[in-house]
Design a protein around this nucleic acid. Structure first.
Lengths: 180, 180
DNA sequence: GTCTATAAAAAGATAGAC
DNA sequence: GTCTATCTTTTTATAGAC
């Protein structure tokens, strides 16, 4: 898959400009590929680019988020490692979340189902850790939701206030709040 | 201001489709006005429409959010009234937040400053209630941030999961969590 | 696999009549 | 204050050469 090479660049573009804002002109300039070349790699146009990115993010979620949650140590240790990964993926809170961007943009209808699955699997994986740690099932599920809510909300606020401090604080507090 | 008549319709459009997705064609169809008429009311085009909406939302924030926070009763009672208003404004979690939409879309550069001010004033007003209730200043500020983070995150999750339950739960828990 | 050139469609915006 | 008609620009998408 030679087109994998362009995924990081494309991810950045869609995160910075949104689905509509990332025009083929900008994509062409950023990747260094002509428009026709872009359609050679992604015959389906921007939709296929975003679908490719979402598949890449599904892997990243598996590798950087879920795997640490299934790793060594107690629940709190695992959550700490998850938060470190989250911090990296969102570059310390400076980068918005593509999931949220897609859910709030004009392409919502196209990508909502896939994004919903990814969010659901993230919540579910957090809940599993807490169930394993002895928490009641409903509580564990709620804590999983709370974690994703806090991360998504903090990313929004970081964008609004142009300040990553709330995001950093949320990530720091999250492991303990989940284990209480 | 006769153009005020169109604000609710415009707000709905931009919330449903985002800044780019709300095209002049859709706006024309939804308002029943021709494109030229739209430019008569909003010479600055879509930018001016959104600016007008944001000024309207600033009033709504003042009237429905801040005013209840300065009202009668203890801190927890005031937060409960705020949450009722929040529930109404976002239609039980079914409607996304225009603030988040603008921050995550292609028009971020144009509206970030204004949206940031509105979020900041919301946080600040929550903090004031907690300071008045005897909380330490830094803690009060953090709780204000936590509230806005929870609401924004819950709205994202509601969109992703196509389920308002997390939003409803967050709003129900919020008053007590703030007062602890 | 990449390019230039071009087409086709859609978007934002305006002129001028009524 | 609203309309029809038109214009300009941008965007997506493709044809065909190399």
């Amino acid at each position: 898959m030679t087109k994998d090479k362009y995924i990081p660049c494309l991810l950045n573009l869609f995160r910075q400009h949104g689905y509509d804002g990332a025009t083929l002109s900008k994509i062409s300039k950023a990747t260094g590929l002509g428009k026709a070349s872009l359609y050679h790699h992604f015959p389906g146009g921007k939709d296929e680019m975003v679908t490719t990115i979402l598949n890449y993010l599904e892997q990243a979620l598996e590798e950087n988020i879920k795997k640490p949650l299934r790793g060594e140590g107690d629940a709190c240790d695992r959550f700490k490692r998850m938060c470190q990964s989250v911090n990296n993926l969102y570059e310390g809170g400076q980068q918005p979340c593509l999931f949220a961007i897609l859910l709030l943009g004009s392409a919502r209808d196209i990508f909502q189902e896939k994004v919903g699955q990814l969010l659901e699997s993230w919540i579910s994986e957090i809940a599993k850790v807490l169930i394993e740690a002895g928490k009641e099932e409903n509580i564990a599920r709620q804590r999983g939701e709370d974690a994703v809510i806090a991360i998504q909300g903090a990313l929004i606020l970081a964008q609004g206030l142009e300040d990553v401090a709330p995001f950093e604080r949320i990530l720091q507090e999250l492991p303990e709040q989940l284990c209480i």
